[in-house]
Nucleic acid binder design. Sequence first.
DNA 1: CTAAAACCTCAAGTAAGCTTGAGGTCAAGT
DNA 2: ACTTGACCTCAAGCTTACTTGAGGTTTTAG
Lengths: 146, 146
Amino acid sequence: MSLEPDDLLGVGEVSRRSGVPVSALRFYEELGLIAATRTPGNQRRYRRHMLRRISLIVVAKRLGIPLSDVQEVFTSLPIDHPPSQRDWRRVAQLWRAQIEQRRTQLEHLQRELTGCIGCGCLSMKACRLLNPEDALADEGPGPRRI
Amino acid sequence: MSLEPDDLLGVGEVSRRSGVPVSALRFYEELGLIAATRTPGNQRRYRRHMLRRISLIVVAKRLGIPLSDVQEVFTSLPIDHPPSQRDWRRVAQLWRAQIEQRRTQLEHLQRELTGCIGCGCLSMKACRLLNPEDALADEGPGPRRI
DNA sequence: CTAAAACCTCAAGTAAGCTTGAGGTCAAGT
DNA sequence: ACTTGACCTCAAGCTTACTTGAGGTTTTAG
């Protein structure tokens, strides 16, 4: 395999190493999440550190973070060199906080669901499950008392 | 408003009471999640208890449960009468378990992310974040050691 | 009776996150 | 040189959960 001389990887190689399908890599490139130089023959060549960026995307996906969010944090990461420890720390803490939030939301829901198991009301009126937080206050669309 | 004589509600009324847009109600009907009789003029008329079913859908949405799952549990709920307390209890417990599962998954991820904040590896090799569970064992697609 | 509000169907569009296919080019081994 | 596999670019398709619009009918209030 005398393919990648320098530290340039072909798209197939990157796919194999990252576990991300080639089609997805091209898609990420369209979104501006990753970048590659081209050979004279127009084929993509990735620098090694791009694997780190791809890793971040993979992690984000596991965390349920939408690509648009990834896009946002990536605006602050230089595309031409590997993310520093500081960068990674910053991103990790941001995402940790986001998970934290969703986790506690789920906890709330679960407590409500548990408390609701016996009641069987579901009557669109005072059921907390059907009236998230505010619902009885505003006059927008949504279930309310009659 | 002498509209709904019996206990039959028009689609607009149901929408107002449930907070679910008319278009969504029609969509749920297509999926077989809800049902309505028709007037001689072909307009939908819902029986009151259909609001309960719609409530279940609304709750499921808040819980992040996909409609396909709702569809499944609905196969065991009679469409022609309101779900009993037992029915509701069964469904609630099922969904509670599902939330539980997703919640603990998030917890794991968060622990890993926290533990990973300092390491900054993301090197596709031994990083736990990039290698969920099994990854080093199988030979399928995905990151692995080299 | 008539006008307006509510309703109907069916087709197409939206967003996210990709995949698949067609039709063609590039690079590597022999 | 030639074959094969890897790669290229569009364009279109897929899933979920709906929304929007066009064009037409029903119901209800006055």
